[in-house]
Structure formats: structure tokens, C-alpha cells
Amino acid sequence: MSSTDDNKKLVQGFYDTLMSSGPEIAFDKYCDAENYTQHNPRLVNGRAGLLEFGRTAAMCKGFTLKIHRMAAQDDLVWVQAETTGLHWPDEPNPVDPASLRHVVIDIFRIEGGKLIEHWDVIQRIPPFTASGNDMI
């Protein structure tokens, strides 16, 4: 089994490649093509699910993704990230993409040096919070 640091580097490499070279290259390099299991209810298992996310993000004017935190235990890596501009095709286009912010928690399971399973929780960041604390 890889060390947790190796697993975090693998996930960081996946995100870097996803944002710089696209979902096809990121999936082929970092994911287990035979067994990749997707738990996002909008996406199917395997390569097709990640490509659908990539197409969705590419259609979003002003889309950005920034990693804020990453932690790992055994074969799992958790990521806290922030997106701007992300919306699904069945949602209206935002007037100001920069104002459409989400906090994303991604969890990846790694096996044999490849990403094999993915869960996420995505929540829109409101313009204010009762506590005054940002969600990031």
C-alpha cells in the first residue's frame, strides 16, 4: 500500500492534470479505467462520468477550482476545494459566475496507485453566514 503522502500527491496530480490538460488525460493517467466507481448522483461510473463533469465545467463561464485543504488516511484522501461558476446544464446560467461559489468535499479511494472510487459533497456558499465564518 502506498503511503498517505504518496496518495495525496496522486490526488494533487489528478487535480493539476484535470485543470491543465482536461478530464480525458487526467482520467487515463490517474484513474482505474476498469473499476472506477462514482458516487456523485449526477455522474455514471467510469471514464464517462468524469468526462461528463469535464464537459459541464467547460461550459461554465468563469469556472475555477481551488484546493484549500487535503488530508489522507490509509487508502482515502479528502479534499476541501472551492469552485466558482459551476452549475449543471439543468440549472440557470449565473449572471455573475464569480458570485456562484461552492465548497466541495471530494473523497477518493486509491488502490494500486490509481483512483478507484470517488464521493463528493457540493454545497453553494451563501453570501453570508449566521456565524460570520466562511465555509472555506
Rank of each mutant, 00 (worst) to 15 (best):
17 T>V: 05
14 F>A: 01
136 I>M: 11
84 T>F: 08
1 M>K: 06
83 T>L: 02
25 I>W: 04
48 A>P: 08
42 R>N: 12
61 K>Y: 07
116 I>K: 08
76 L>V: 14
56 T>A: 07
64 T>V: 12
50 L>E: 03
50 L>A: 07
75 D>E: 10
114 K>P: 01
122 I>E: 03
23 P>A: 14
19 M>L: 15
44 V>C: 12
112 G>E: 06
133 N>R: 14
51 L>A: 03
67 I>V: 15
101 R>L: 03
4 T>A: 02
111 E>S: 15
94 P>W: 01
8 K>S: 01
61 K>M: 12
131 S>M: 12
116 I>N: 06
101 R>K: 12
48 A>L: 10
61 K>P: 04
88 W>Y: 15
77 V>R: 00
72 A>G: 04
98 A>R: 12
132 G>Y: 05
107 I>T: 13
6 D>K: 11
22 G>M: 11
93 N>K: 13
58 A>K: 13
2 S>V: 04
51 L>C: 07
93 N>V: 12
99 S>W: 09
30 Y>Q: 02
21 S>L: 14
30 Y>A: 01
5 D>N: 08
126 P>W: 13
98 A>E: 12
117 E>T: 08
80 Q>W: 15
76 L>Q: 08
119 W>C: 01
52 E>W: 06
72 A>E: 01
7 N>H: 02
116 I>D: 06
102 H>G: 06
101 R>T: 04
49 G>A: 05
99 S>G: 13
65 L>A: 07
57 A>E: 03
126 P>G: 14
98 A>F: 11
19 M>Q: 09
82 E>L: 06
30 Y>W: 04
4 T>Q: 03
60 C>V: 10
83 T>W: 00
29 K>V: 08
135 M>F: 15
112 G>Q: 11
129 T>I: 10
86 L>F: 09
127 P>Q: 10
58 A>R: 14
39 H>W: 11
102 H>N: 14
39 H>F: 09
57 A>F: 05
2 S>L: 12
36 Y>W: 04
64 T>Y: 03
93 N>L: 09
42 R>L: 11
41 P>C: 09
106 D>Y: 03
85 G>R: 00
43 L>G: 03
39 H>N: 12
45 N>L: 02
29 K>M: 11
74 D>M: 05
19 M>Y: 05
78 W>D: 10
105 I>C: 12
72 A>T: 05
15 Y>D: 06
46 G>H: 08
78 W>L: 13
113 G>L: 09
123 Q>D: 14
40 N>T: 07
49 G>L: 03
